[in-house]
Design a protein around this nucleic acid. Structure first.
Ligand SMILES: [Zn+2]
Ligand SMILES: [Zn+2]
Ligand SMILES: [Zn+2]
Ligand SMILES: [Zn+2]
Lengths: 390, 390
DNA sequence: ATAGGTCAGGGTTCACA
DNA sequence: TGTGAACCCTGACCTAT
């Protein structure tokens, strides 16, 4: 099966899950022929393109992306906005970069670190590190769901006895502190998040089984937002952080200079987008990420400037431009770097991020959210068509 | 880390807890190199040393040590003070031993049995077997403190209702008989011994939590003696019993014969010292204990006789000689048998036993208690140095 | 790596005073 | 109304697979 058709199928399923009016144009977009996007230079990079840096180009996880960790790699990038840089400038840039460094150990509680991304990245969309019943620390997958030791033992006993009467609305919010107050709601929550003896996997679970469980969790996560009360908040913080990075890129692009700063923010955007969707940090190629983001931003701005695409009104919103870039980035990265389909959980996450932003902008929308969502996806479709012709 | 340094750290902490002047010489002693004490023969005993006895050499707990339980093991010991013993003598000895037997069920109230040792042994230094509020039998650790079922339920209710008037001096002695007479003082006692809702979580408590609780109890036990009015009395009885056994050894050593009696009292001393500091009765090796005590007493007397150590004046007190032997025994047993550090609670118990004896001898002391304590520990240090060279 | 067992310890119940 | 022995429920740690 072609990746494109798989993406289409997934999109249809996602659209149906949302009962949204864009399912038709979306399906129309998805049914077009597979586009042969230009291969990225990084797949076979000319030596002059990336310079002769001997730096390790694979980003290793769990440390904050800082300019000092990549600035020397990117200052020689042949971006049209960029002038050649002398080695002294490189040194200065490295010196300057220390100012941007933020120690992960001294961060304030409301800042974002890798842990937040781990919680929300698509492969851990199932909240692997948290008990899905009470949000305590998870000790692994029990009865098919990531839970803590306590909820594991509780479900084992409850499944045997099944004598838990429930308080009737069954709406208690289960927390580590109050989880013993209402066994009925706790057991109900266990079943709602999908705990079941049939889900038990003996020994090391197969990749297929894990995928199935993840799909189930994903659907619950999307459809039953009350099951995951703080998931939306976490995701919003990450989306805002991403949009903030995009505004920096946007501003720098419009000014047309400060290539080092542009590269820094492009890499930050790419890294954050990547972390949001992937947990395999060892595969993260920082040169590739920066290049994709810079190319996408470059081409988007050019398409507008040259009037090839009529700029929709909502694209004037930086947050929605950020999301469009994110959609294109994920589609590009999946299709042409990983050479695989955009699977359902990633598509759901994309749609969820879009809806979150649209909900926030409801007061200033002149049409319904669903109409705007439809417009957004149509615009995304046009871009995927045009970008490949550049 | 070497056991020696760990013992040093614990000793410094204990010394500081007592604000004693011996912390400096003690630290000096502790910071010296680790001594390679001679390995005990029992680690690899020659068959002739212990004879061909098929007796189980591991003492099993909860029965009073009587000659009948070990005399057949030691009559063939090649101690210099010992003559060979015929099998008839063995039989006679076993027959005789019945005279020494005291049934644990018929003992009078002021005699000492295993139960007293359980109360004071270092690992139960926190009075695990007694309710620390009313001194009734404990049913375990409740709200962070060893209490009975009654005081457990009382504390929970009192915490929920919280309307107890107190008789003002708050000095009622809480006993199992009168504990319901004054709820105010009972609740006050609960809080004074450290019961608290904050100490508590559901489910089986983690080991880390239990260690923390034991440390807290240890500190309260050391610093707030009024909370534990009968702890000192119990400990004094056990120390006196130990000193009595030492006087027997001392007298026998000076006479230079009656090896069987010497072995009996050496084992009694070793067993009582062991019970005072350990609860793991299954690990108790009676051959090993007797051998350590005999060796220690032997070497101590020889050092005095040969003038290698100038006998301090206070060593003429048998009770202090007993304590010195006890200190050396515990240090030897911990370091070379268990191969571990002397932990803080054992060190505190050693210091407490010393201080108790010194307080009793205050009328006949010519210098302050702290000076004598300092001298005692310096003497202990010298012995640990010299013993290893033998 | 996860299911099931263990058991110390918290909470609840209910004769009993 | 308060008490406390007996009971149920919880969950950190353990073993088995
Ligand atoms: Zn849980
Ligand atoms: Zn409820
Ligand atoms: Zn009590
Ligand atoms: Zn009182």
């Amino acid at each position: 099966m072609e990746p494109f058709n798989l993406f289409h199928s997934a999109a249809v399923a996602a659209a149906e899950a949302y009962s949204s009016p864009f399912s038709y144009p979306f399906r129309h977009f998805m049914s077009q022929r597979r586009y042969e996007w230009p291969t990225l230079p990084s797949n076979n990079p000319p030596p002059s393109f990336y310079g002769n840096s001997t730096m390790d180009h694979h980003y290793h996880a769990l440390s904050t992306i800082t300019p000092s960790s990549y600035s020397s790699t990117y200052i020689s990038s042949p971006n049209p906005y960029m002038s050649n840089t002398s080695s002294e400038t490189m040194m200065n840039d490295i010196e300057q970069s220390r100012l941007y460094y933020t120690d992960i150990t001294s961060r304030s509680d409301d800042s974002i670190d890798d842990y937040d991304y781990t919680l929300s990245s698509a492969t851990v969309f199932s909240l692997k590190d948290r008990c899905q019943v009470c949000s305590d620390r998870s000790s692994g997958i029990h009865f098919g769901v990531s839970t803590c030791e306590a909820c594991k033992a509780f479900f084992r006993r409850a499944n045997n006895n099944s004598l838990h009467k429930s308080c009737e609305p069954k709406k208690c919010i289960i927390t580590p502190q109050n989880r013993n107050d209402c066994p009925g709601c706790r057991y109900d929550k266990c079943k709602r998040v999908g705990m079941a003896r049939e889900n038990v996997v003996y020994g090391k679970p197969s990749k297929q089984k894990l995928d199935e469980l993840q799909q189930q969790t994903l659907l619950r996560c999307t459809n039953e937002s009350d099951v995951y009360p703080n998931f939306n908040d976490r995701l919003k913080r990450l989306a805002d952080d991403l949009a903030l990075e995009y505004r920096q890129i946007d501003a720098l692009y419009r000014r047309g200079y400060e290539q080092e700063q542009l590269s820094i923010h492009a890499l930050n955007y790419g890294t954050k987008a990547y972390k949001l969707f992937y947990t395999q940090r060892s595969e993260l190629n920082i040169r590739l990420l920066t290049d994709i983001i810079l190319k996408l931003c470059d081409q988007l701005l050019n398409l507008y400037k040259n009037g090839i695409i009529t700029q929709p009104w909502f694209i004037q919103q930086p947050n929605l431009r950020s999301l469009l870039t994110l959609w294109l980035f994920i589609y590009y990265y999946e299709t042409f770097v990983l050479k695989q389909k955009v699977n359902q959980d990633k598509l759901m996450l994309l749609i969820r991020l879009l809806d979150m932003e649209l909900e926030r902008q409801t007061p200033i929308l002149t049409t319904s959210i669903k109409t705007v969502r439809c417009d957004f996806i149509n615009t995304f479709t046009k871009f995927t068509e045009l970008l490949q012709e550049i």
